[in-house]
Design a protein around this nucleic acid. Sequence first.
DNA 1: GCACAAGAGTTCGGTGACTGAACCGTTTGG
DNA 2: CCAAACGGTTCAGTCACCGAACTCTTGTGC
Lengths: 193, 193
Amino acid sequence: MTLPRDYRGQTCALARSMEIVGERWTLLILRDAFYGVRRFGEFAAHLGVPRAVLTDRLTALTAAGVLERRPGTGTGRREVYGLTPKGIALWPAVRALTSWGEEFHAADGGPRRVFRHAGDEAPLDADGRCTSCGTAVPVADVVVAPGPGLAPATPDDDPVTAALARPHRLLRPLLGPPLTTAPPGRPTRGSQR
Amino acid sequence: MTLPRDYRGQTCALARSMEIVGERWTLLILRDAFYGVRRFGEFAAHLGVPRAVLTDRLTALTAAGVLERRPGTGTGRREVYGLTPKGIALWPAVRALTSWGEEFHAADGGPRRVFRHAGDEAPLDADGRCTSCGTAVPVADVVVAPGPGLAPATPDDDPVTAALARPHRLLRPLLGPPLTTAPPGRPTRGSQR
DNA sequence: GCACAAGAGTTCGGTGACTGAACCGTTTGG
DNA sequence: CCAAACGGTTCAGTCACCGAACTCTTGTGC
């Protein structure tokens, strides 16, 4: 696997990047990680990726230092996958490819999701800068919100899709323990589907 | 091919992008197109990609509107592949992935290639802005230059690698007809190897 | 013109990766 | 202690990729 799968002879940094994040599903997994997806089952249900491939990708990304396994917070929860600083540094690439897709392959009603600056709620421009204050917005201050082109929610949506129907700060866990503001009458758990 | 190879069920623009530029070799082909590579044989020799795969990628990218086939300029030359505006819009993504690779997987001596602003020769920062004048540099004003980590040239380098040993403006043809400032005593042709 | 050579793809067998579904051991909650 | 959920593995079938040889077209030298 190590030899025939790399880009031999390339003296370019892009080839090195592609060896790590260039395989099928990898960037979608990382996008979900930015959205706050943290657990194996959440990735699997939201992406529809074969579980064997997901195992392989999570292992490879962890070995590459892009993701890391952390003990789950809260009441002795399972381990979760989280972005390392090296992984967070991929945000400009993820954002650029996403905005390219929105620009040239938008849904009928417009963008499916929009990224906004958490402070002033203004959308980001093509270079990832706040259209209001003009600053380069750090990842942790980006909010992903549903756009007009997003299909309406259906009852059989997976939990991640359902959670993304509301604006959400990047890197914050999307589901699970830190759900301190849970609706009353429901025990604080991670698997509300 | 159309059904099993897409990312079904994804409502995200990133998935649309990955269907177009997410396959193996595709982003490296586009990087070469930004460098000014234009012909089938140049791509093949520089990348080492199997020719059948190259044919498939060039066809797919042309069908997607990212590349286009143009009649070769000069004395009735063959057709060449060039970036469309839609393809040029991918520059932030290519640049982001390249700079990520340089930052986290640099060669021993430092970056292999550096991107500079054509006017003032200052390098670009992580967001693609000129570190001197601060403006977001458009693609056509970017110069790719060899960096300290680039391996020294060898006699059996392909023509593209040899040409990239010198600073070069992006999107300008790297080899071929527009070589008006050719060294004296050599006829103006495209296949000097 | 005409033979020749180089460029641009095509063909093809072998190999590895991805898919989808079933299966298994552990963890968690009751 | 039990049952469900979870995380991950196994496996057969399919598809994409690799590498080399081959064909067809285009331009060149005579």
